[in-house]
Structure formats: structure tokens, C-alpha cells
Simulated assay, not measured.
Amino acid sequence: MMASERAEIDSAAALWLERMRGPVQDSAVAASFDAWIAEDPRHVESYALMASLWQSEGLAQAACPTRAGNDNAAGLDAADARHGGVWGRRRWFGLAAGLAALAVAVPLGQGLFAPTHTYEASWGATREITLADGSHIQLSGGSRLSVRLTPWSREAELEKGEAFFDVAHEALRGFAVEAEGARVEVLGTAFDIDVLAGGRREVRVYRGLVQVAGESGAWRLPAGTGLILDGAHVRSLEGIGGDRPGWLDGWFDAQDTRLDRLIERLNRTSRIPVELDDPQLGELRVTGRFEMHRPQEIVETLAAIHGLSWSRDEGRYRIGRQ
């Protein structure tokens, strides 16, 4: 490869690195980056090199002499702010060309073909996961999550169930979670995603800021708020308190919640499944705070609230009409 072509790729990689370091990237930017990174294996190598050098001491040492030797650095930085970062990009071009010569000292292979790890929690149990980047994830019973960490991205997919994410902050890599067509993107925060039957997804933010993108649009959610995506219907959630969801402590707060939704959540923690004899009973509503580790008490309470009958047979609880 000619030196000019190498320099062009390195410059593009440096610009993408600068762009992807923003706090939240919209889906169009992410799609453009994915297309660029997949276009040529050399793009992967160059971006990984830029990322490695950005986090190394070598970058700071390379940048400091440039600033120290420029009496007009403060003025140029002010102009940079006024003109959308043009000088910053030019500075990156120079650094990219110079630092590319250090490629032999940077292990590029590590992470370029990072595997996807899949985690599952069995019904009636929760599972705690610590990722290599220091992020902590807790899965509710019956949940399945896939995670892939690369030098330039942190991607996860919640295939089913519920997960609480306490994401380690990084200046370079964001953290994105796909959940049944919804995409949640953050840098460092704590949030909960619940994938329910019928494609309903619920997102609650406990710390920081997230962006949620779905088929109906995109929304930014600060701590204490949330969103319910149910097909084309979207509903905001307010007044989310605490620093973690109640299910981590064995509780569920129902607010005019459908009976079948409550039972779906109960079955994630109960080792004895709960079933409705008539699916139409699932449309009944309930409000209250339930201790999810006491399934029989919940079944008794639900039956009393709505004048239903209940029984335990064949290793399960059944709720039906009287």
C-alpha cells in the first residue's frame, strides 16, 4: 500500500475516533461508522491503532510539544471552537501520520476478532456478570444477553428477559444495547431494560443519560425517567427513584399493571410457575408492591383482589375464575 493511501486511511480513522468519542451517537452516525469499518480490513487496523494510541502515554507526549511550541495555541483553540473543530481535525491528521510509524509497538490483533459472549440466567434465579471493561450487569431469571467488546465499541443484545446495566465510563467507547428493535446508547450510566411478551420494551434510567432509538423515533432520557415502547405506542415514565430497580432486591412495584405482565415478571423469580386458566384474565389490572420471592402470597392476593380462584397442582400455581 502506498504511503499516501496509508495516510488517507489513518486520517479517516482519526476523524472517526474524534467523532465517536461524543457522548451519544445517533443511529445514522453509527450506521455510517459501521459501513466504513467493515469496508476494508485496513480500516479496522487503523482505527484500532488510533484507539490504542489515544489511550496511551505516547499520544500525550506527542501532543504536548506541539502545544508548548506554539505561542498561539490558545488562540487556535478558541478559533477551533468557533469553526467546528477544524484545527482539531488538522492536528489529528498530523498526529495520525506521525503515530502510524509506531504501529509496530501497538498490538493490533487483540480485540479485532473479539468473540461474542452469551450469558443466561435460569428461571427462578438471577445472575451477576462483570465485563472486562468493568461494567456490571445483573440478569433476571429466564433472561439471555449477548455481549461483544472490541477496541472501538461495546455492543450487547438483550434477547429476552430483563437486565440492569451499571456501565463503566469510558471516553472512547460508548455502550449500546439492542432489545427487540430498540437501541439504547450510553457512555457511563445505570439503567434497566425489560423485554416483555409481545415485543413490549421498558427502559428505566437510574444514573446518567441514555438515548433510546426505536421504530417511532429517538428520545434522550435523563436519570429518574423511562420509556415504554409497545409497537407503535410510546409512553414516558417519570418519578423513577433510587439507584437500582426493585427487582434486584426481590420487589416489584405495580402501577395499574396488567395481570399477565405481573405474572410474567413473577415467573422470572419463582421456581414454581404461575399460569392463568383463561388468557383474558391477563387484562385485569393491579396496583401494589409485591415481594417476588413469595409467589403463593402473591397468587392469594391477586385472587382476592379480583374475586378469582387459585390452586396448586402438577408443580404450578393456577389462577382461574370462580
Rank of each mutant, 00 (worst) to 15 (best):
D10R: 08
A12G: 07
R19P: 01
D26G: 01
V29H: 09
A31R: 13
F33Q: 08
D34C: 08
I37L: 12
A38P: 10
D40M: 09
V44Q: 04
V44K: 04
A63M: 10
P65L: 09
A68D: 13
A68N: 15
G69A: 00
D71F: 10
D77P: 05
R82E: 14
G88F: 01
R91L: 15
L95M: 09
G98V: 07
A105H: 15
T116R: 15
G124F: 01
A125Y: 15
T130F: 12
D133Q: 12
G134L: 05
H136S: 12
H136P: 09
G141K: 06
G141D: 07
S143E: 01
L145E: 02
A168P: 04
E170I: 10
F175P: 01
A176G: 12
A179G: 08
G181A: 05
A182I: 05
L187W: 04
F191Y: 00
L196P: 09
G198Y: 03
R200E: 05
V205K: 06
R207T: 04
A213Q: 14
S216V: 04
G217Q: 06
A218G: 14
A218M: 13
R220N: 11
L221R: 06
P222M: 10
P222K: 14
A223D: 06
G226I: 06
L229Y: 00
G231A: 07
A232V: 11
V234W: 01
D249M: 11
A254C: 10
L262E: 06
R265P: 06
L266D: 03
N267W: 03
V274R: 06
D278P: 08
V286L: 14
G288Y: 05
R289F: 06
E291V: 14
I298M: 05
I305G: 02
S309W: 04
W310Q: 09
